[in-house]
Design a protein around this nucleic acid. Structure first.
Lengths: 131, 131
DNA sequence: GGTAAACCTTCCCCGGACTGGAAGCCCGGC
DNA sequence: GCCGGGCTTCCAGTCCGGGGAAGGTTTACC
């Protein structure tokens, strides 16, 4: 399969796939014409990467997961640990955004939002130097 | 005031402040020794930027907010619109992360997490090409 | 057989929003 | 006169690719 085929099949762009080869996540072969040749295993890995990335795993996470994926001997607990770290990051990010949301909602609620120039939002932004 | 003073007062790093000058957010004066000289107004703007950035406003948002902040004639509704766009982005991001969290929690819950090699997490990651 | 489109290759620059580091002034204190 | 720290500039790097140029290859069609 050429890069366009696996791009469509995996949902990744050709650019991204070349990048993943560049950083050593995959190692496709080459045809006589210089084109990359992807095996089914390569496609499998790319689909794996596509899904993992879309779930918020970092490239380094993916590298680790891919290594675990290829290691027939690894314990499922190892995989679980990576997933749980990611979950913790997601939850922390959500909590942070909830805080932002509360502050923003509060400010927007206070602003009368008409043609008068005074605005509590700007007043607040100007007031608190280090939140 | 020198850059170190306003850095401490605003909560921004000196590097960041130079960067903000670079992209035209502030225009401090210069002393005879070549050092930047910051006025109280500059410090005020930097504090404003610090707080705005920490609330998730993009640099472009900040540029707009700063212009509104300096415009004595603007309507508070204009400011409110910028804040509301930001709030919408925050809410969308939260929703997205909640989805991730649900998927991850589900996968983690399914994994027995012991020393056996088979793991539902990897099975799922490998299975769904385009989520 | 010609040719045009679509595909592939490498290459380099670009973004956001900074951060780190190196080389070199400047300033205050001892 | 020297030392430490602060300031200056510039260069490079981060993360994860996107955009596009310049050129080779393959395919489809007439």
């Amino acid at each position: 399969m050429n890069i366009g085929d696996v791009a469509e099949a995996s949902g990744l762009s050709a650019k991204t796939i070349r990048y993943y080869e560049d950083i050593g996540l995959i190692r496709p072969g080459r045809g006589e014409n210089g084109y990359r040749r992807f095996s089914d295993t390569d496609l499998h890995k790319l689909s794996f990467l596509s899904r993992s990335r879309s779930l918020g795993f970092s490239i380094d996470d993916c590298r680790a997961l891919l290594a675990l994926y290829e290691d027939r001997e690894r314990a499922s607990a190892d995989v679980r640990a990576v997933a749980q770290q990611n979950l913790a990051r997601v939850e922390a990010k959500i909590a942070e955004l909830e805080g932002l949301k509360a502050t923003l909602s509060d400010l927007i609620g206070k602003c009368h939002g008409d043609t008068r120039p005074d605005c509590p939002i700007l007043a607040d932004l100007a007031a608190a130097p280090q939140s």
